[in-house]
Each structure stands twice: as structure tokens, then as C-alpha cells.
């Protein structure tokens, strides 16, 4: 899995590419938390639109980052265009508490 980050205003933008499972999610969690806390950021945008695979490990990763942001009174936003990823997000109830956008720009504009 590849992970790239960018900082836009007080948003940490994280793009995930490839396959997100138990094997890759722990590394992703460490990297995201490191950037988020080291740069003292408030909000996170997780871009899942380039994932080829995601299982319940992705739900755990999203829930964990949601908690990180809430602890700082920030927001977690998701970018997702894949019907397959959306099916899993919906099943977990995450779509009821987290806003899902189709591009990073839309997410930043709100």
C-alpha cells in the first residue's frame, strides 16, 4: 500500500493507494498519527478513492482517526468514489457520522 500526505490549511490530506487490510493498516495508522500530531493539525481528510481493496481493517482505521480528530474538536472527512468501499462504509454506520465527498477539493470547501 502507498500512502502520501499533504497539508492544506489545517487539514492533513492522506491519500491511500492499493490494498488496505490488517497487514497494511497498522503502518498506515502510525504514519497518519505521526503527521497529524507532529504538525499539530486539527482536521484529517482520508482519500480512499484509489483503494483497490478494503476490509473491516479500513473501518477500524477510519474510526480511529475519527476519534483522534474529535479529541481535538476537529473533523474527519472522507473522499470515496468506489461503490465497493462505500458499501463497507455504509454497513459500518460510518456514513451517518462522517461526511463523504467525491474529491479532495470538495471536502476542503465543505
Amino acid at each position: 500500500m502507498q500512502l502520501s500526505t499533504d497539508i492544506v490549511n489545517d487539514y492533513l490530506v492522506v491519500e491511500l493507494k492499493g490494498e488496505l487490510d490488517h497487514h497494511t493498516s497498522e503502518d498506515a495508522r502510525k504514519k497518519i498519527e505521526q503527521y497529524y500530531y507532529n504538525n499539530n493539525l486539527l482536521n484529517i481528510i482520508l482519500d480512499l478513492s484509489q483503494l483497490k481493496f478494503m476490509d473491516s481493517s479500513g473501518i477500524g482505521l477510519v474510526m480511529g482517526r475519527y476519534k483522534n480528530c474529535k479529541e481535538r474538536n476537529g473533523n474527519l472527512l472522507i473522499v470515496s468514489t468506489s461503490p465497493y468501499v462505500n458499501k463497507i462504509l455504509k454497513m459500518s454506520g460510518l456514513m451517518k457520522i462522517i461526511k463523504v465527498y467525491s474529491t479532495i477539493d470538495e471536502a476542503i470547501k465543505g
Binding site: S25, D55, S56, S57, I59, G60, G64, I88, M91, S92
Partner: peptide, 14 residues
């Protein structure tokens, strides 16, 4: 603690 969501069986059933 390991960020498991507890949704594995639900995903399999669905």
C-alpha cells in the same frame, strides 16, 4: 486497542 471494529463477521454475513 488494536483498532479492530468488530465488523468482520457482519461483513462475511453480508
Amino acid at each position: 486497542d488494536l483498532e479492530r471494529s468488530g465488523m468482520g463477521f457482519t461483513v462475511m454475513e453480508t
